[in-house]
Design a protein around this nucleic acid. Structure first.
Length: 558
RNA sequence: AACCCCGUGGUGUAACGGUAGCACAACUGGUUUUGGUCCAGUUAGUCUAGGUUCGAAUCCUGGCGGGGUUGCCA
């Protein structure tokens, strides 16, 4: 064994799976599942679970199902199913025929429920939801037994079948597991496992009027699919005894008994992650949709230009633990820059133009210059870049009175135009208010391409576009959605913490090569950041979403 | 308040009774036709009090701090 082959450390889940494989707990198999409820779009937090579920399966030659946990049709919809499949596939995981629906198992779940009733483990209860509050007890006081608790099995079975047949009003009866009303874990105090709810199901229409509760349905879904390792987030930790109770009382035993393991969800600074809150941002038009580039959704990040690989890298870096922390958004930005620095072609763009006239350059004509597409990736080739007498440069790349350490353009200073020539500023034109509106320069023809044959150096290299050839583009700059690091922690009314400047739309100039760039393409505008071409049918101009700004040590110093 | 889970630099994560390491962030410096990249370096950590042990981030007990649970949501 050489040093390079030194094993990477495993997270606690992968260690557990490795031990299971070694001990043959599940007969040497690994089956996992990613089980979203189709009531919203997937976000970056789900990506962590997806990477874990699919990752552990793949590492052990197992399979992973994408299961729609559609046991409560009130908020579920096919739109969400479709978006979830799209997002999982975009992340690079196969779905295909491994797409399943919990609701397809409803018949088997009813059979199991009847078995629980027959063995005295479940009973039909007529206590209203309000009445139950009193019976349930509190966190510190035990509950009381329902008067229906000892209803004969035959009677419960009959009532349960009539519940299913639609003989009762919504909420009139429920089926409860008979466990322990004195348990310190409230989930074990005779939890509801079936309720009557006449709601149209997006997949089964009005076939069902009883729906199973999560705590009862989930372990069965896992068991029916042959899942071995059922990973979920920390808030389900306290539900695990019930998960186990369902399986134990229906006779599931290893190696055919799934096991639940919890890990901490992903939190990112400056955003919210709960579907309820994200839904509100969409419904109340605080953002333009689930795929708004400011959203922490997978689709939003895709549109923002964040590559799937960056999300993988983030998930790998944050790892899997039970510590409930908050990951700095800077880590996602780092992962994004890392991938984009390698892959994105470089282009020139000017967002806040200042006119530059090259006095000694011919009035007419355009000179095509060679520009390398990506210095990190020679195989990306090069392109032609038009140069002319009138140019635009970034307003911030010129200063009348430059502070110490500023090495861009200023009166008397010489800088390099990227891929172009050295230019020197000779004259400044101001308007009546004293604002600089034009800079007059001379260029050195010997420095074509950006190198001086006499070996003289310039410290600054600035970007530019030829005024006549440049293309108008809409550039969208995004900032964090919220002003606070952890929005919503202080007040439930988290929308009061929304950042009013989270979207800035700018009319800028880009070089002509970008006129017809395909949507989704990631590019770097030198010195400005990474951008993703957007397909926005509301505008006839190319649109760019800024994925992430470049690191900028100069402006940070100021 | 009862029960469960979790506490390692500012942040995220390693070390599985034997040298506290990595990454991000921050800060220096070097290279550079992007103030990007790349390279080198600096700052900074085991919540706390006991106990077990030759030896504790790791095991035990108490305290403190954080999170979760009182849906006929998932």
């Amino acid at each position: 064994m050489t040093e390079e082959t030194k094993a990477e450390s495993l997270d606690f889940i992968r260690e557990m799976v490795a031990a299971d494989m070694k001990n043959g707990t599940f007969g040497g198999k690994v089956v996992t599942r990613f089980p979203p409820e189709p009531n919203g779009y997937l976000h970056i937090g789900h990506a962590k679970a997806i990477c874990l579920d699919y990752g552990v399966a793949a590492e052990n030659n197992g399979v992973c199902y994408l299961r729609m946990d559609d046991t409560n049709p009130t908020k579920e919809d096919t739109e969400y199913v479709e978006s979830i499949v799209r997002d999982v596939e975009w992340l690079g995981f196969p779905v295909g025929d491994r797409l399943t629906f919990a609701s397809d198992c409803f018949e088997k779940m009813v059979e199991c429920a009847e078995k629980l009733i027959e063995t005295g483990k479940a009973y039909v209860c007529d206590l209203s939801a309000e009445a139950w509050e009193e019976y349930r007890g509190t966190l510190s006081a035990p509950g009381r037994e329902s008067p229906n608790r000892n209803r004969p099995a035959a009677e419960s079975l009959d009532l349960f079948r009539r519940m299913r047949a639609g003989e009762f009003e919504d909420g009139a009866l429920v089926l409860r597991a008979k466990i322990d009303m004195a348990s310190p874990n409230i989930n074990m105090r005779d939890p509801v496992i079936y309720r009557i709810r006449r709601v149209h199901h997006f997949r089964h229409g009005d076939k069902w009027c009883i729906y199973p509760m999560y705590d009862y349905a989930h372990p069965l879904e896992d068991a029916f699919e042959g899942v071995t390792h059922s990973f979920c987030t920390l808030e389900f930790e306290i539900h695990r005894p019930l998960y186990d109770w369902v399986l134990d009382n229906l006779g599931f035993a290893f190696p055919n008994r799934p096991r639940q393991t919890e890990f901490s969800r992903l939190n990112l600074t400056g955003t919210v992650m709960s579907k309820r809150k994200l839904l509100r941002l969409v419904k109340e038009n605080f953002v333009q949709g689930w795929d708004d580039p400011r959203m922490p959704t997978i689709s939003g990040m895709r549109r923002r230009g964040i590559p799937a690989e960056a999300i993988h890298r983030l998930c790998k870096t944050v790892g899997i633990t039970k510590f409930d922390g908050v990951t700095d958004l800077a880590l996602l930005e780092f992962c994004t820059r890392e991938v984009l620095n390698r892959d994105a072609s470089r282009y020139l763009a000017v967002l806040d133009p200042l006119k530059v006239v090259i006095a000694n350059f011919p009035e007419e004509g355009v000179e095509p210059l060679d520009a390398v597409n990506n210095p990190e990736k020679p195989e990306a080739g090069s392109r032609k870049l038009p140069f002319s007498r009138t140019l635009y440069i970034e307003r911030s790349d010129f200063m009348l009175e430059p502070p110490k350490g500023y090495f861009r353009l200023s009166p008397g200073a010489e800088v390099r135009l990227r891929y172009g020539y050295f230019i020197k500023c000779n004259e400044v034109v101001k308007d009546a208010a004293g604002n600089v509106v034009e800079v007059r320069c001379t260029f050195d023809p010997a420095t074509r391409g950006g190198a001086a044959p006499d070996g003289r150096k310039v410290k600054g290299t600035i970007h530019w576009v030829a005024a006549d050839a440049a293309v108008r583009a809409e550039v969208r700059l995004y900032d964090r959605l919220f002003t606070t690091e952890e929005p919503g922690t202080e007040s439930e009314d988290f929308v009061t913490e929304l950042n009013p400047d989270s979207l800035r739309v700018i009319e800028g100039f880009v070089e002509p090569a970008l006129a017809e760039i395909p949507a989704g393409t990631a590019v770097q505008f030198e010195r400005l950041g990474y951008f993703a071409a957007d397909l926005d049918t509301c505008t006839d101009r190319p649109v760019f979403n800024r994925t992430v700004a470049l690191k900028d040590s100069w402006s940070k110093k100021q």
